[in-house]
Computed example of a mutant assay.
Amino acid sequence: MSSMRVFQLGLRRAAAPAFRGNFAGRMVQRRLANSQSTSASSAEEILVKQRVNRPVSPHLAIYRPQITWYGSMFNRLTGIILSGGLYLFGFAYLAAPTLGWHLESQSLIAAVAGWSTWAKASAKFGLSMPFFYHSLNGVRHLVWDTGKALSNKAVMQSGWAVVGASVAASLYFSFLA
Score class of each variant (00 low, 15 high):
L142Q: 07
W69Y: 11
K49E: 12
N53W: 03
Q157R: 07
F91C: 14
Q106N: 11
T117P: 09
A95I: 05
F23I: 01
W118A: 09
G10W: 06
D145N: 06
A168N: 02
F74V: 13
G79S: 08
G71R: 01
R140Y: 04
Y87G: 14
V143I: 14
A169F: 04
M4Q: 13
G10K: 02
V167E: 01
T98H: 14
I80C: 05
A119Y: 06
M1C: 05
G114Q: 11
A111K: 07
R13S: 07
G71C: 03
S122F: 07
G147A: 09
S42K: 04
R140P: 01
M4R: 08
N22P: 06
L108N: 03
H134D: 04
F132M: 06
S128E: 01
R26K: 13
W115V: 04
S105V: 15
A14S: 10
S116L: 12
S128V: 11
Y63T: 07
V6E: 06
A43D: 07
M27H: 05
M4D: 09
F125P: 00
L108V: 14
Q29P: 02
L32E: 11
Q106V: 14
V155A: 09
E104C: 06
A149L: 13
N34V: 12
G85Q: 09
H102F: 06
S174W: 01
W144Y: 12
F19T: 03
R5H: 14
Y172T: 11
V52Y: 02
G85W: 02
L88T: 15
K148G: 08
F131A: 08
S37R: 05
K49M: 07
A92K: 07
T98F: 15
Q50K: 10
W118F: 11
K148T: 12
A154E: 07
A33V: 13
